[in-house]
Nucleic acid binder design. Structure first.
Lengths: 175, 175
DNA sequence: GTTTGTTTACCTATCAGTAGGTAGACATGC
DNA sequence: GCATGTCTACCTACTGATAGGTAAACAAAC
């Protein structure tokens, strides 16, 4: 993998666990084995790095969601959607990047905050389409809020069960 | 108000908008009109301040919830619970302190993270009691996750409507 | 195929600014 | 006189960012 991509990967991990303000160029440089000036070579300013990480994260999530959109029933598509978040929480052992950055939204450089809003709006659009032909269903922001909150709560309380409570509650409300 | 309490109040506001890592003794000192050394006099280390803010916030929230517990129906009690969060979001124009700190949980000093967990567990216990005699209802972690996520989403997207979508979705599921 | 110029990807060194934190002087009030 | 609260002055560590240099890769010209 290129140094550029290795930095992106290390930055995503640190952003998701520590938040924007707590990530430093030096820590990232240590993570990938270069000096901090070299990180600046690839991402001149911190906000350049922030925007790039959110964009790459958005691409990664929607690549997974594109597969989930092919399921035949609305409930299966919602199950696929939930699965993407569950994977982020359980396999990657961290909350959603945009939950972390959303919390910090007011203190983020504008281009980074904008990228986070793009992520959430794309999620709303995806859910609107995926559940278009479901009879009775929660609104898309309800679903996103429930899952982002569930990740946050499960992470804080160290309890995957709390995430699963939310997941099954959502699934029971569709179709 | 005492300087001690003025610092607590300023710290709560800054913690809720910027997060633990982004709050500095200098900023707080400026907020209340003293020097940073004087803030250290009242709260020797940053984690002392963090714990004190979370404890004061927890007291404040549960003082409001104690009133809501007196409502006669489970649905009214849930409406009261939601009202406390709505007030925090709309009147105080910030997300819940413990949503912010929960996101950062992994990077917090242990005593601060513990105080956040105490807050959430107390919320679970309150809801369990308030909705004990409701026939069909979401689990307590579902309700908390939905509301914390709703604050986060509404804050990021600058849309109170998204919070209200979640609030009415929750209310429709009780009794 | 060797010289020449350019680019890529790093480095060391340093900057001004800010972080949390401390020591000790000074004022106020009991 | 002593406790309380605030101050000035300072420390070390770290922040994002920049300047300037270098080794290797690559391309073009001859």
């Amino acid at each position: 993998m290129s140094m550029h991509d290795r930095i992106l990967e290390a930055a995503e991990a640190r952003l998701r666990s520590d938040g924007y303000g707590a990530v430093s160029f030096r820590d990232l440089a240590n993570d990938v084995g270069v000096k901090s000036a070299s990180v600046h070579y690839h991402f001149p300013r911190k906000e350049d790095l922030g925007v790039a990480v959110v964009a790459a994260y958005t691409d990664k999530v929607f690549a997974a969601l594109d597969l989930a959109m092919h399921a035949t029933t609305p409930q299966d598509r919602l199950a696929g959607y939930i699965g993407v978040f569950r994977h982020a929480l359980v396999q990657e052992n961290a909350i959603c990047l945009c939950a972390m950055l959303g919390a910090e939204a007011r203190g983020l450089p504008a281009p980074v905050a904008d990228a986070v809003r793009v992520f959430f709006q794309a999620n709303i659009d995806w859910l609107d389409e995926a559940l278009a032909d479901a009879a009775d269903k929660p609104k898309s922001p309800e679903i996103i809020a429930a899952l982002e909150g569930a990740m946050l709560l499960a992470n804080t309380m160290d309890s995957i069960a709390m995430f699963e409570d939310v997941a099954s509650g959502l699934l029971s409300r569709v179709e």
